[in-house]
């Protein structure tokens, strides 16, 4: 597990775990649907994640919107999933960017947990998958280009697309 502090948001450290070859995506999704409060995480499908910067842009946006009381969804974790989506349709954002029954690789994020050790143990117990390092290289290997192209309406997927996608997240909802 990696703990990341975003610049300017020292009071909201992120705990991030990247799992590959996840076996129980349907179970995890069900916990979110049931509103199980033990599962207050942002579960992202790593297939539509370009890079670390991409994830951080969505996290910053979601946390800033939380601070400004502008949440469009239930809590900061669901807002991270929503922030990734370039349009304002909440259920579509969950379908595209959240965990689904077919999710293979999963990025789990917890914002400002008081007990980081508990978060880590709980995640590793609940998610059946292999923990892999959260790096741009590993993420790049998990990317589903077709999905990304469709989600962001882009022709090119790769490093060059980062800036544009981050810009779209920043501009979203304007």
């Amino acid at each position: 597990m990696e703990t990341i502090t975003l610049p300017h948001l020292p009071q909201f450290p992120l705990q991030v775990v990247l799992f590959s070859e996840v076996k129980n995506a349907d179970f995890l999704r069900q916990q979110l649907l049931d509103g199980n409060t033990d599962f207050e995480y942002a579960f992202l499908d790593a297939a539509v994640i370009l890079s670390r910067e991409h994830v951080f842009a969505a996290c910053f946006r979601a946390i800033n919107d939380t601070l400004q009381s502008r949440l469009k969804s239930k809590n900061v974790h669901s807002e991270i999933v929503f922030a990734l989506s370039p349009n304002n349709n909440i259920s579509e954002s969950f379908r595209r960017f959240g965990v689904s029954d077919t999710t293979k690789d999963l990025l789990a994020i917890k914002v400002a947990s008081r007990d980081a050790v508990h978060t880590e143990t709980h995640l590793k117990e609940s998610v059946q998958g292999t923990v892999v390092p959260f790096t741009d290289e590993v993420l790049a290997g998990m990317t589903d280009e077709a999905c990304l192209r469709k989600a962001y309406k882009i022709d090119v997927v790769g490093n060059e697309a980062d800036a544009y996608v981050v810009g779209m997240i920043a501009l979203k909802g304007s």
């Binding site: 370039p86 192209r149 309406k153 882009i154 022709d155 090119v156 060059e160 697309a161 800036a163 544009y164 810009g167 779209m168 920043a170 501009l171 979203k172 909802g173 304007s174």
Partner: peptide, 24 residues
């Protein structure tokens, strides 16, 4: 602020965005 940001994002999407649509 939005006018400025939209122009910058639009330009950063040159050759990337499909169909040249600008978000928002």
């Amino acid at each position: 602020i939005l006018a400025e940001a939209r122009v910058l994002v639009k330009l950063s999407g040159e050759g990337i965005a499909a169909g040249g649509s600008t978000p928002g």
